[in-house]
């Protein structure tokens, strides 16, 4: 029996250039619309590598506005630390019928409901 460790680290995100869709960099260097597909970099060196990769994809006009944010991985799912990134990975909390959360591409955490 193994207990799943919680990994903390950073994820690289951006908006896809042609449509503005929120995307996350994956292990294979693709951009995923689903935060669970993101690669979590735990070491500063790995984080720097993600950033470099992101800048490269900005230069070839795949994405725009890349940056790292804090997240953790539990049971194979990625959880954004800050509410802003949780909203970006799901969609507006006031329209749960729209965005990633409605398209089966949402994160594995519950949408905030009301206040």
């Amino acid at each position: 029996m193994t207990t799943t460790a919680t990994e903390k680290g950073k994820i690289l995100t951006a908006n896809r250039l042609r449509d503005g869709e929120v995307v996350f960099l994956t292990h294979s260097g693709e951009w995923s619309e689903n935060i669970d597909g993101a690669v979590l970099a735990t070491e500063p060196q790995a984080q720097a590598a993600l950033e470099a990769r992101g800048k490269g994809d900005e230069r070839v006009n795949l994405v725009t506005g890349t940056y790292l944010f804090d997240a953790e991985r539990r049971d194979g799912h990625v959880f954004a630390s800050h509410i802003k990134e949780r909203i970006r990975s799901l969609g507006p909390t006031v329209r749960v019928d729209l965005g990633k959360q409605a398209e089966g591409k949402g994160g594995h955490f519950a949408a905030l409901q009301g206040v």
Partner: peptide
């Protein structure tokens, strides 16, 4: 020109803003 990469984001941003196009949380 932006989509084909002739214009960088830094060059394009003021042009799109002059036409009311922002980049927000979920899309433009």
């Amino acid at each position: 020109r932006r989509l084909t990469g002739e214009l960088s984001e830094d060059e394009f941003r003021p042009l799109r803003l002059m036409n009311g196009l922002y980049l927000q949380l979920h899309a433009y």
